[in-house]
């Protein structure tokens, strides 16, 4: 039985797709059989971040509408053995997703995989609710700004009521906070909310903190999830995040401004 994890946020552009790709990759690198599903029908870009856009033939909607089998639509990742991608459709409209269709797909996948990672569209409407409905765990992606925190709060309310677990009175969806695009210098300046403020408002466990990083941009342009970039701050932060998701205790990094030591000042080092 796979664990179903939804990566969600309410707000758009906060790093959901980046995080879904990075976490799925990290889980697969740790030997977990993982599939990552793009629920953002009409705006698909998970396949770009995963670097498999040229290999898309069939997509989620094709499978739901019976035009292709699940195995025909699943794309095997080039870099990691245990990783598969189920892309979204670029052309169909959002209503093509049905609850029964999604349930059937997840039911089938859950037998073959350890983890199913669902990349949610933005918003709090149908698409986002479908992506979260069957989740066992949720990674709530939040940027250090007021509007993003507010939207995450709204999503947490939905997770507590509009999910299968909530409706069946089962143990609630396990909620994790993932803060992304964190820029300690701007936080120190007071331009952005700090870690403690965000945690205090949202009142859920912190799964990870991903710094604002050039490496993410580079990774998405190359179509290689940033988790593969072991030398980068964002890559390491996602690796830490995955370890915590697997239940390990890993100290938090990248949340404070680097105190430049003598050596790094001399050699201009530091984090890329």
């Amino acid at each position: 039985m796979a664990k179903i994890i939804v990566v969600t946020s309410g707000k758009g552009g906060v790093g959901k797709t980046t995080s879904a790709a990075a976490i799925a990759t990290g889980l697969a690198l740790r030997g977990k059989k993982t599939v990552v599903i793009d629920f953002d029908v009409g705006l698909r870009n998970l396949d770009l971040i995963m670097g498999c856009e040229r290999r898309v033939v069939y997509d989620l909607v094709n499978v739901i509408q019976g035009e292709a089998g699940l195995n025909q639509a699943l794309i095997r990742d080039k870099r990691v053995d245990n990783l598969h991608i189920l892309p979204a459709s670029q052309t169909r409209d959002k209503d093509a997703l049905t609850q029964e269709g999604v349930e059937k797909i997840l039911e089938t996948l859950t037998k073959d995989f350890d983890y199913i990672v669902c990349d949610s569209p933005a918003g709090i409407e149908r698409g986002a609710q479908l992506a979260m409905y069957y989740a066992d765990e949720a990674v709530v992606v939040t940027n250090p700004e007021v509007s993003s925190v507010r939207d995450s709060d709204r999503i947490l309310g939905l997770l507590a009521s509009k999910t299968r677990r909530a409706e069946n009175g089962q143990e609630p969806v396990k909620e994790h906070l993932l803060i992304t695009r964190y820029n300690p210098a701007r936080v120190d300046h007071g331009d952005m909310l700090n870690l403690d403020d965000i945690q205090e408002i949202l009142a859920i466990d912190l799964l990870g903190l991903i710094p604002e990083s050039e490496a993410v941009l580079r990774a998405s342009n190359q179509g290689i999830p940033v988790t593969h970039d072991n030398d980068s701050d964002a890559g390491q932060a996602y690796t830490d995040t995955v370890s915590r998701l697997l239940g390990e205790k890993v100290p938090l990094r990248f949340h404070e401004t680097q105190k430049k030591g003598l050596l790094s000042r001399m050699f201009g080092g530091g984090r890329r």
Partner: peptide, 23 residues
Amino acid sequence: TVRSGQQVSAPEGDLVVVGSVNA
């Protein structure tokens, strides 16, 4: 926590919230 978009009411008597009420 009572979260954005949620409403909690006590139509009779007092309401006690053990947690925060968010914006």
